[in-house]
Design a protein around this nucleic acid. Structure first.
Lengths: 146, 146
DNA sequence: CTTTTAAATAGGAAAATTTCCTATATAATA
DNA sequence: TATTATATAGGAAATTTTCCTATTTAAAAG
């Protein structure tokens, strides 16, 4: 993640503060799962986190990692990357378009956004490699779910 | 999908053309899986497609639907929406940022893109509901994989 | 229109991922 | 320290996806 970044301590304090105010218990396991994820720079899966944590917490269950991540995600302390639900979803390849997803009913709407297709990419990405395509994903709550 | 849209016939001809030129066999099952997905507007999962197709093709196996979608995806005739791999991946919630994914090694890089964060959304979305956040996903091939 | 053959399919089994169940343990509070 | 609601471990179960193999079929050749 590019700077400016919060320090680990700041992140841990945020978790602590949140638990206190929401009544969520700050268990050893939760703290460690969060800390491990906060330290990671590689967007790990639940299983990878579990494997890393088992070195320190040999009895930690995989279920706890899943549960903790889900709980923290509900409270926006953790983000799940790029997945809708459990099942993958498909579409016939069309011309360039983007997706608008209702977080409530999970319906996906396609739309065009030529202005986005055109804006230049950030300078900092020029050395990364070859970028082949870009996509915008919008989230919200559709009319019917409000 | 907003217009202009290709007609179903055009899409089917594209599939046919592709099969011919690539040596891929145009089986009845492939044609029907593709047709069903081309007609769908709801970005269905493999299982939903299978359920719909079973009305017409009672012996169609779920595995064939999965295999067909995977094959067509490899050739860019079908797109898988918003999933990286099989396992979900996580990160601690930071300030607004976006993702750049290497299609080869699957590494995810975070980056900032204030210009994107600022551009106005398309007019056509104003009646959809309440859009709460936007995210850009870039794909490509990183330096190390080239 | 047959024959040939490499590729694809059906169906069930297996693998992989995630969630559920329940007895036990623990954080927060009194 | 006692109480209690919540969280955990561990294994079972559910869900999603892929694999295996005998059979079928599309495409090409005769």
């Amino acid at each position: 993640m590019p700077s400016p970044e919060k320090s680990l301590d700041e992140k841990l304090r945020r978790l602590e503060r949140f638990c206190k105010s929401s009544g969520m218990k700050l268990t050893h396991q939760r703290l460690e799962v969060f800390r491990e994820l906060a330290l990671a720079t590689d967007h790990p899966s639940a299983e990878i986190l579990h494997r890393r944590l088992q070195l320190r917490l040999p009895t930690l269950s995989l279920d706890t990692v899943y549960r903790t991540l889900a709980t923290l995600e509900e409270h926006d302390l953790v983000a799940r990357i790029q997945t809708t639900e459990s099942q993958a979803r498909f579409e016939v390849q069309e011309q360039i378009h983007h997706h608008l997803i209702c977080d409530s009913c999970k319906k996906i709407v396609d739309f065009h956004w030529p202005d986005f297709d055109r804006i230049p990419l950030p300078e900092e990405l020029s050395s990364w490699g070859a970028i082949t395509h870009r996509k915008a994903i919008l989230h919200g709550r559709c009319r019917h779910c409000s």
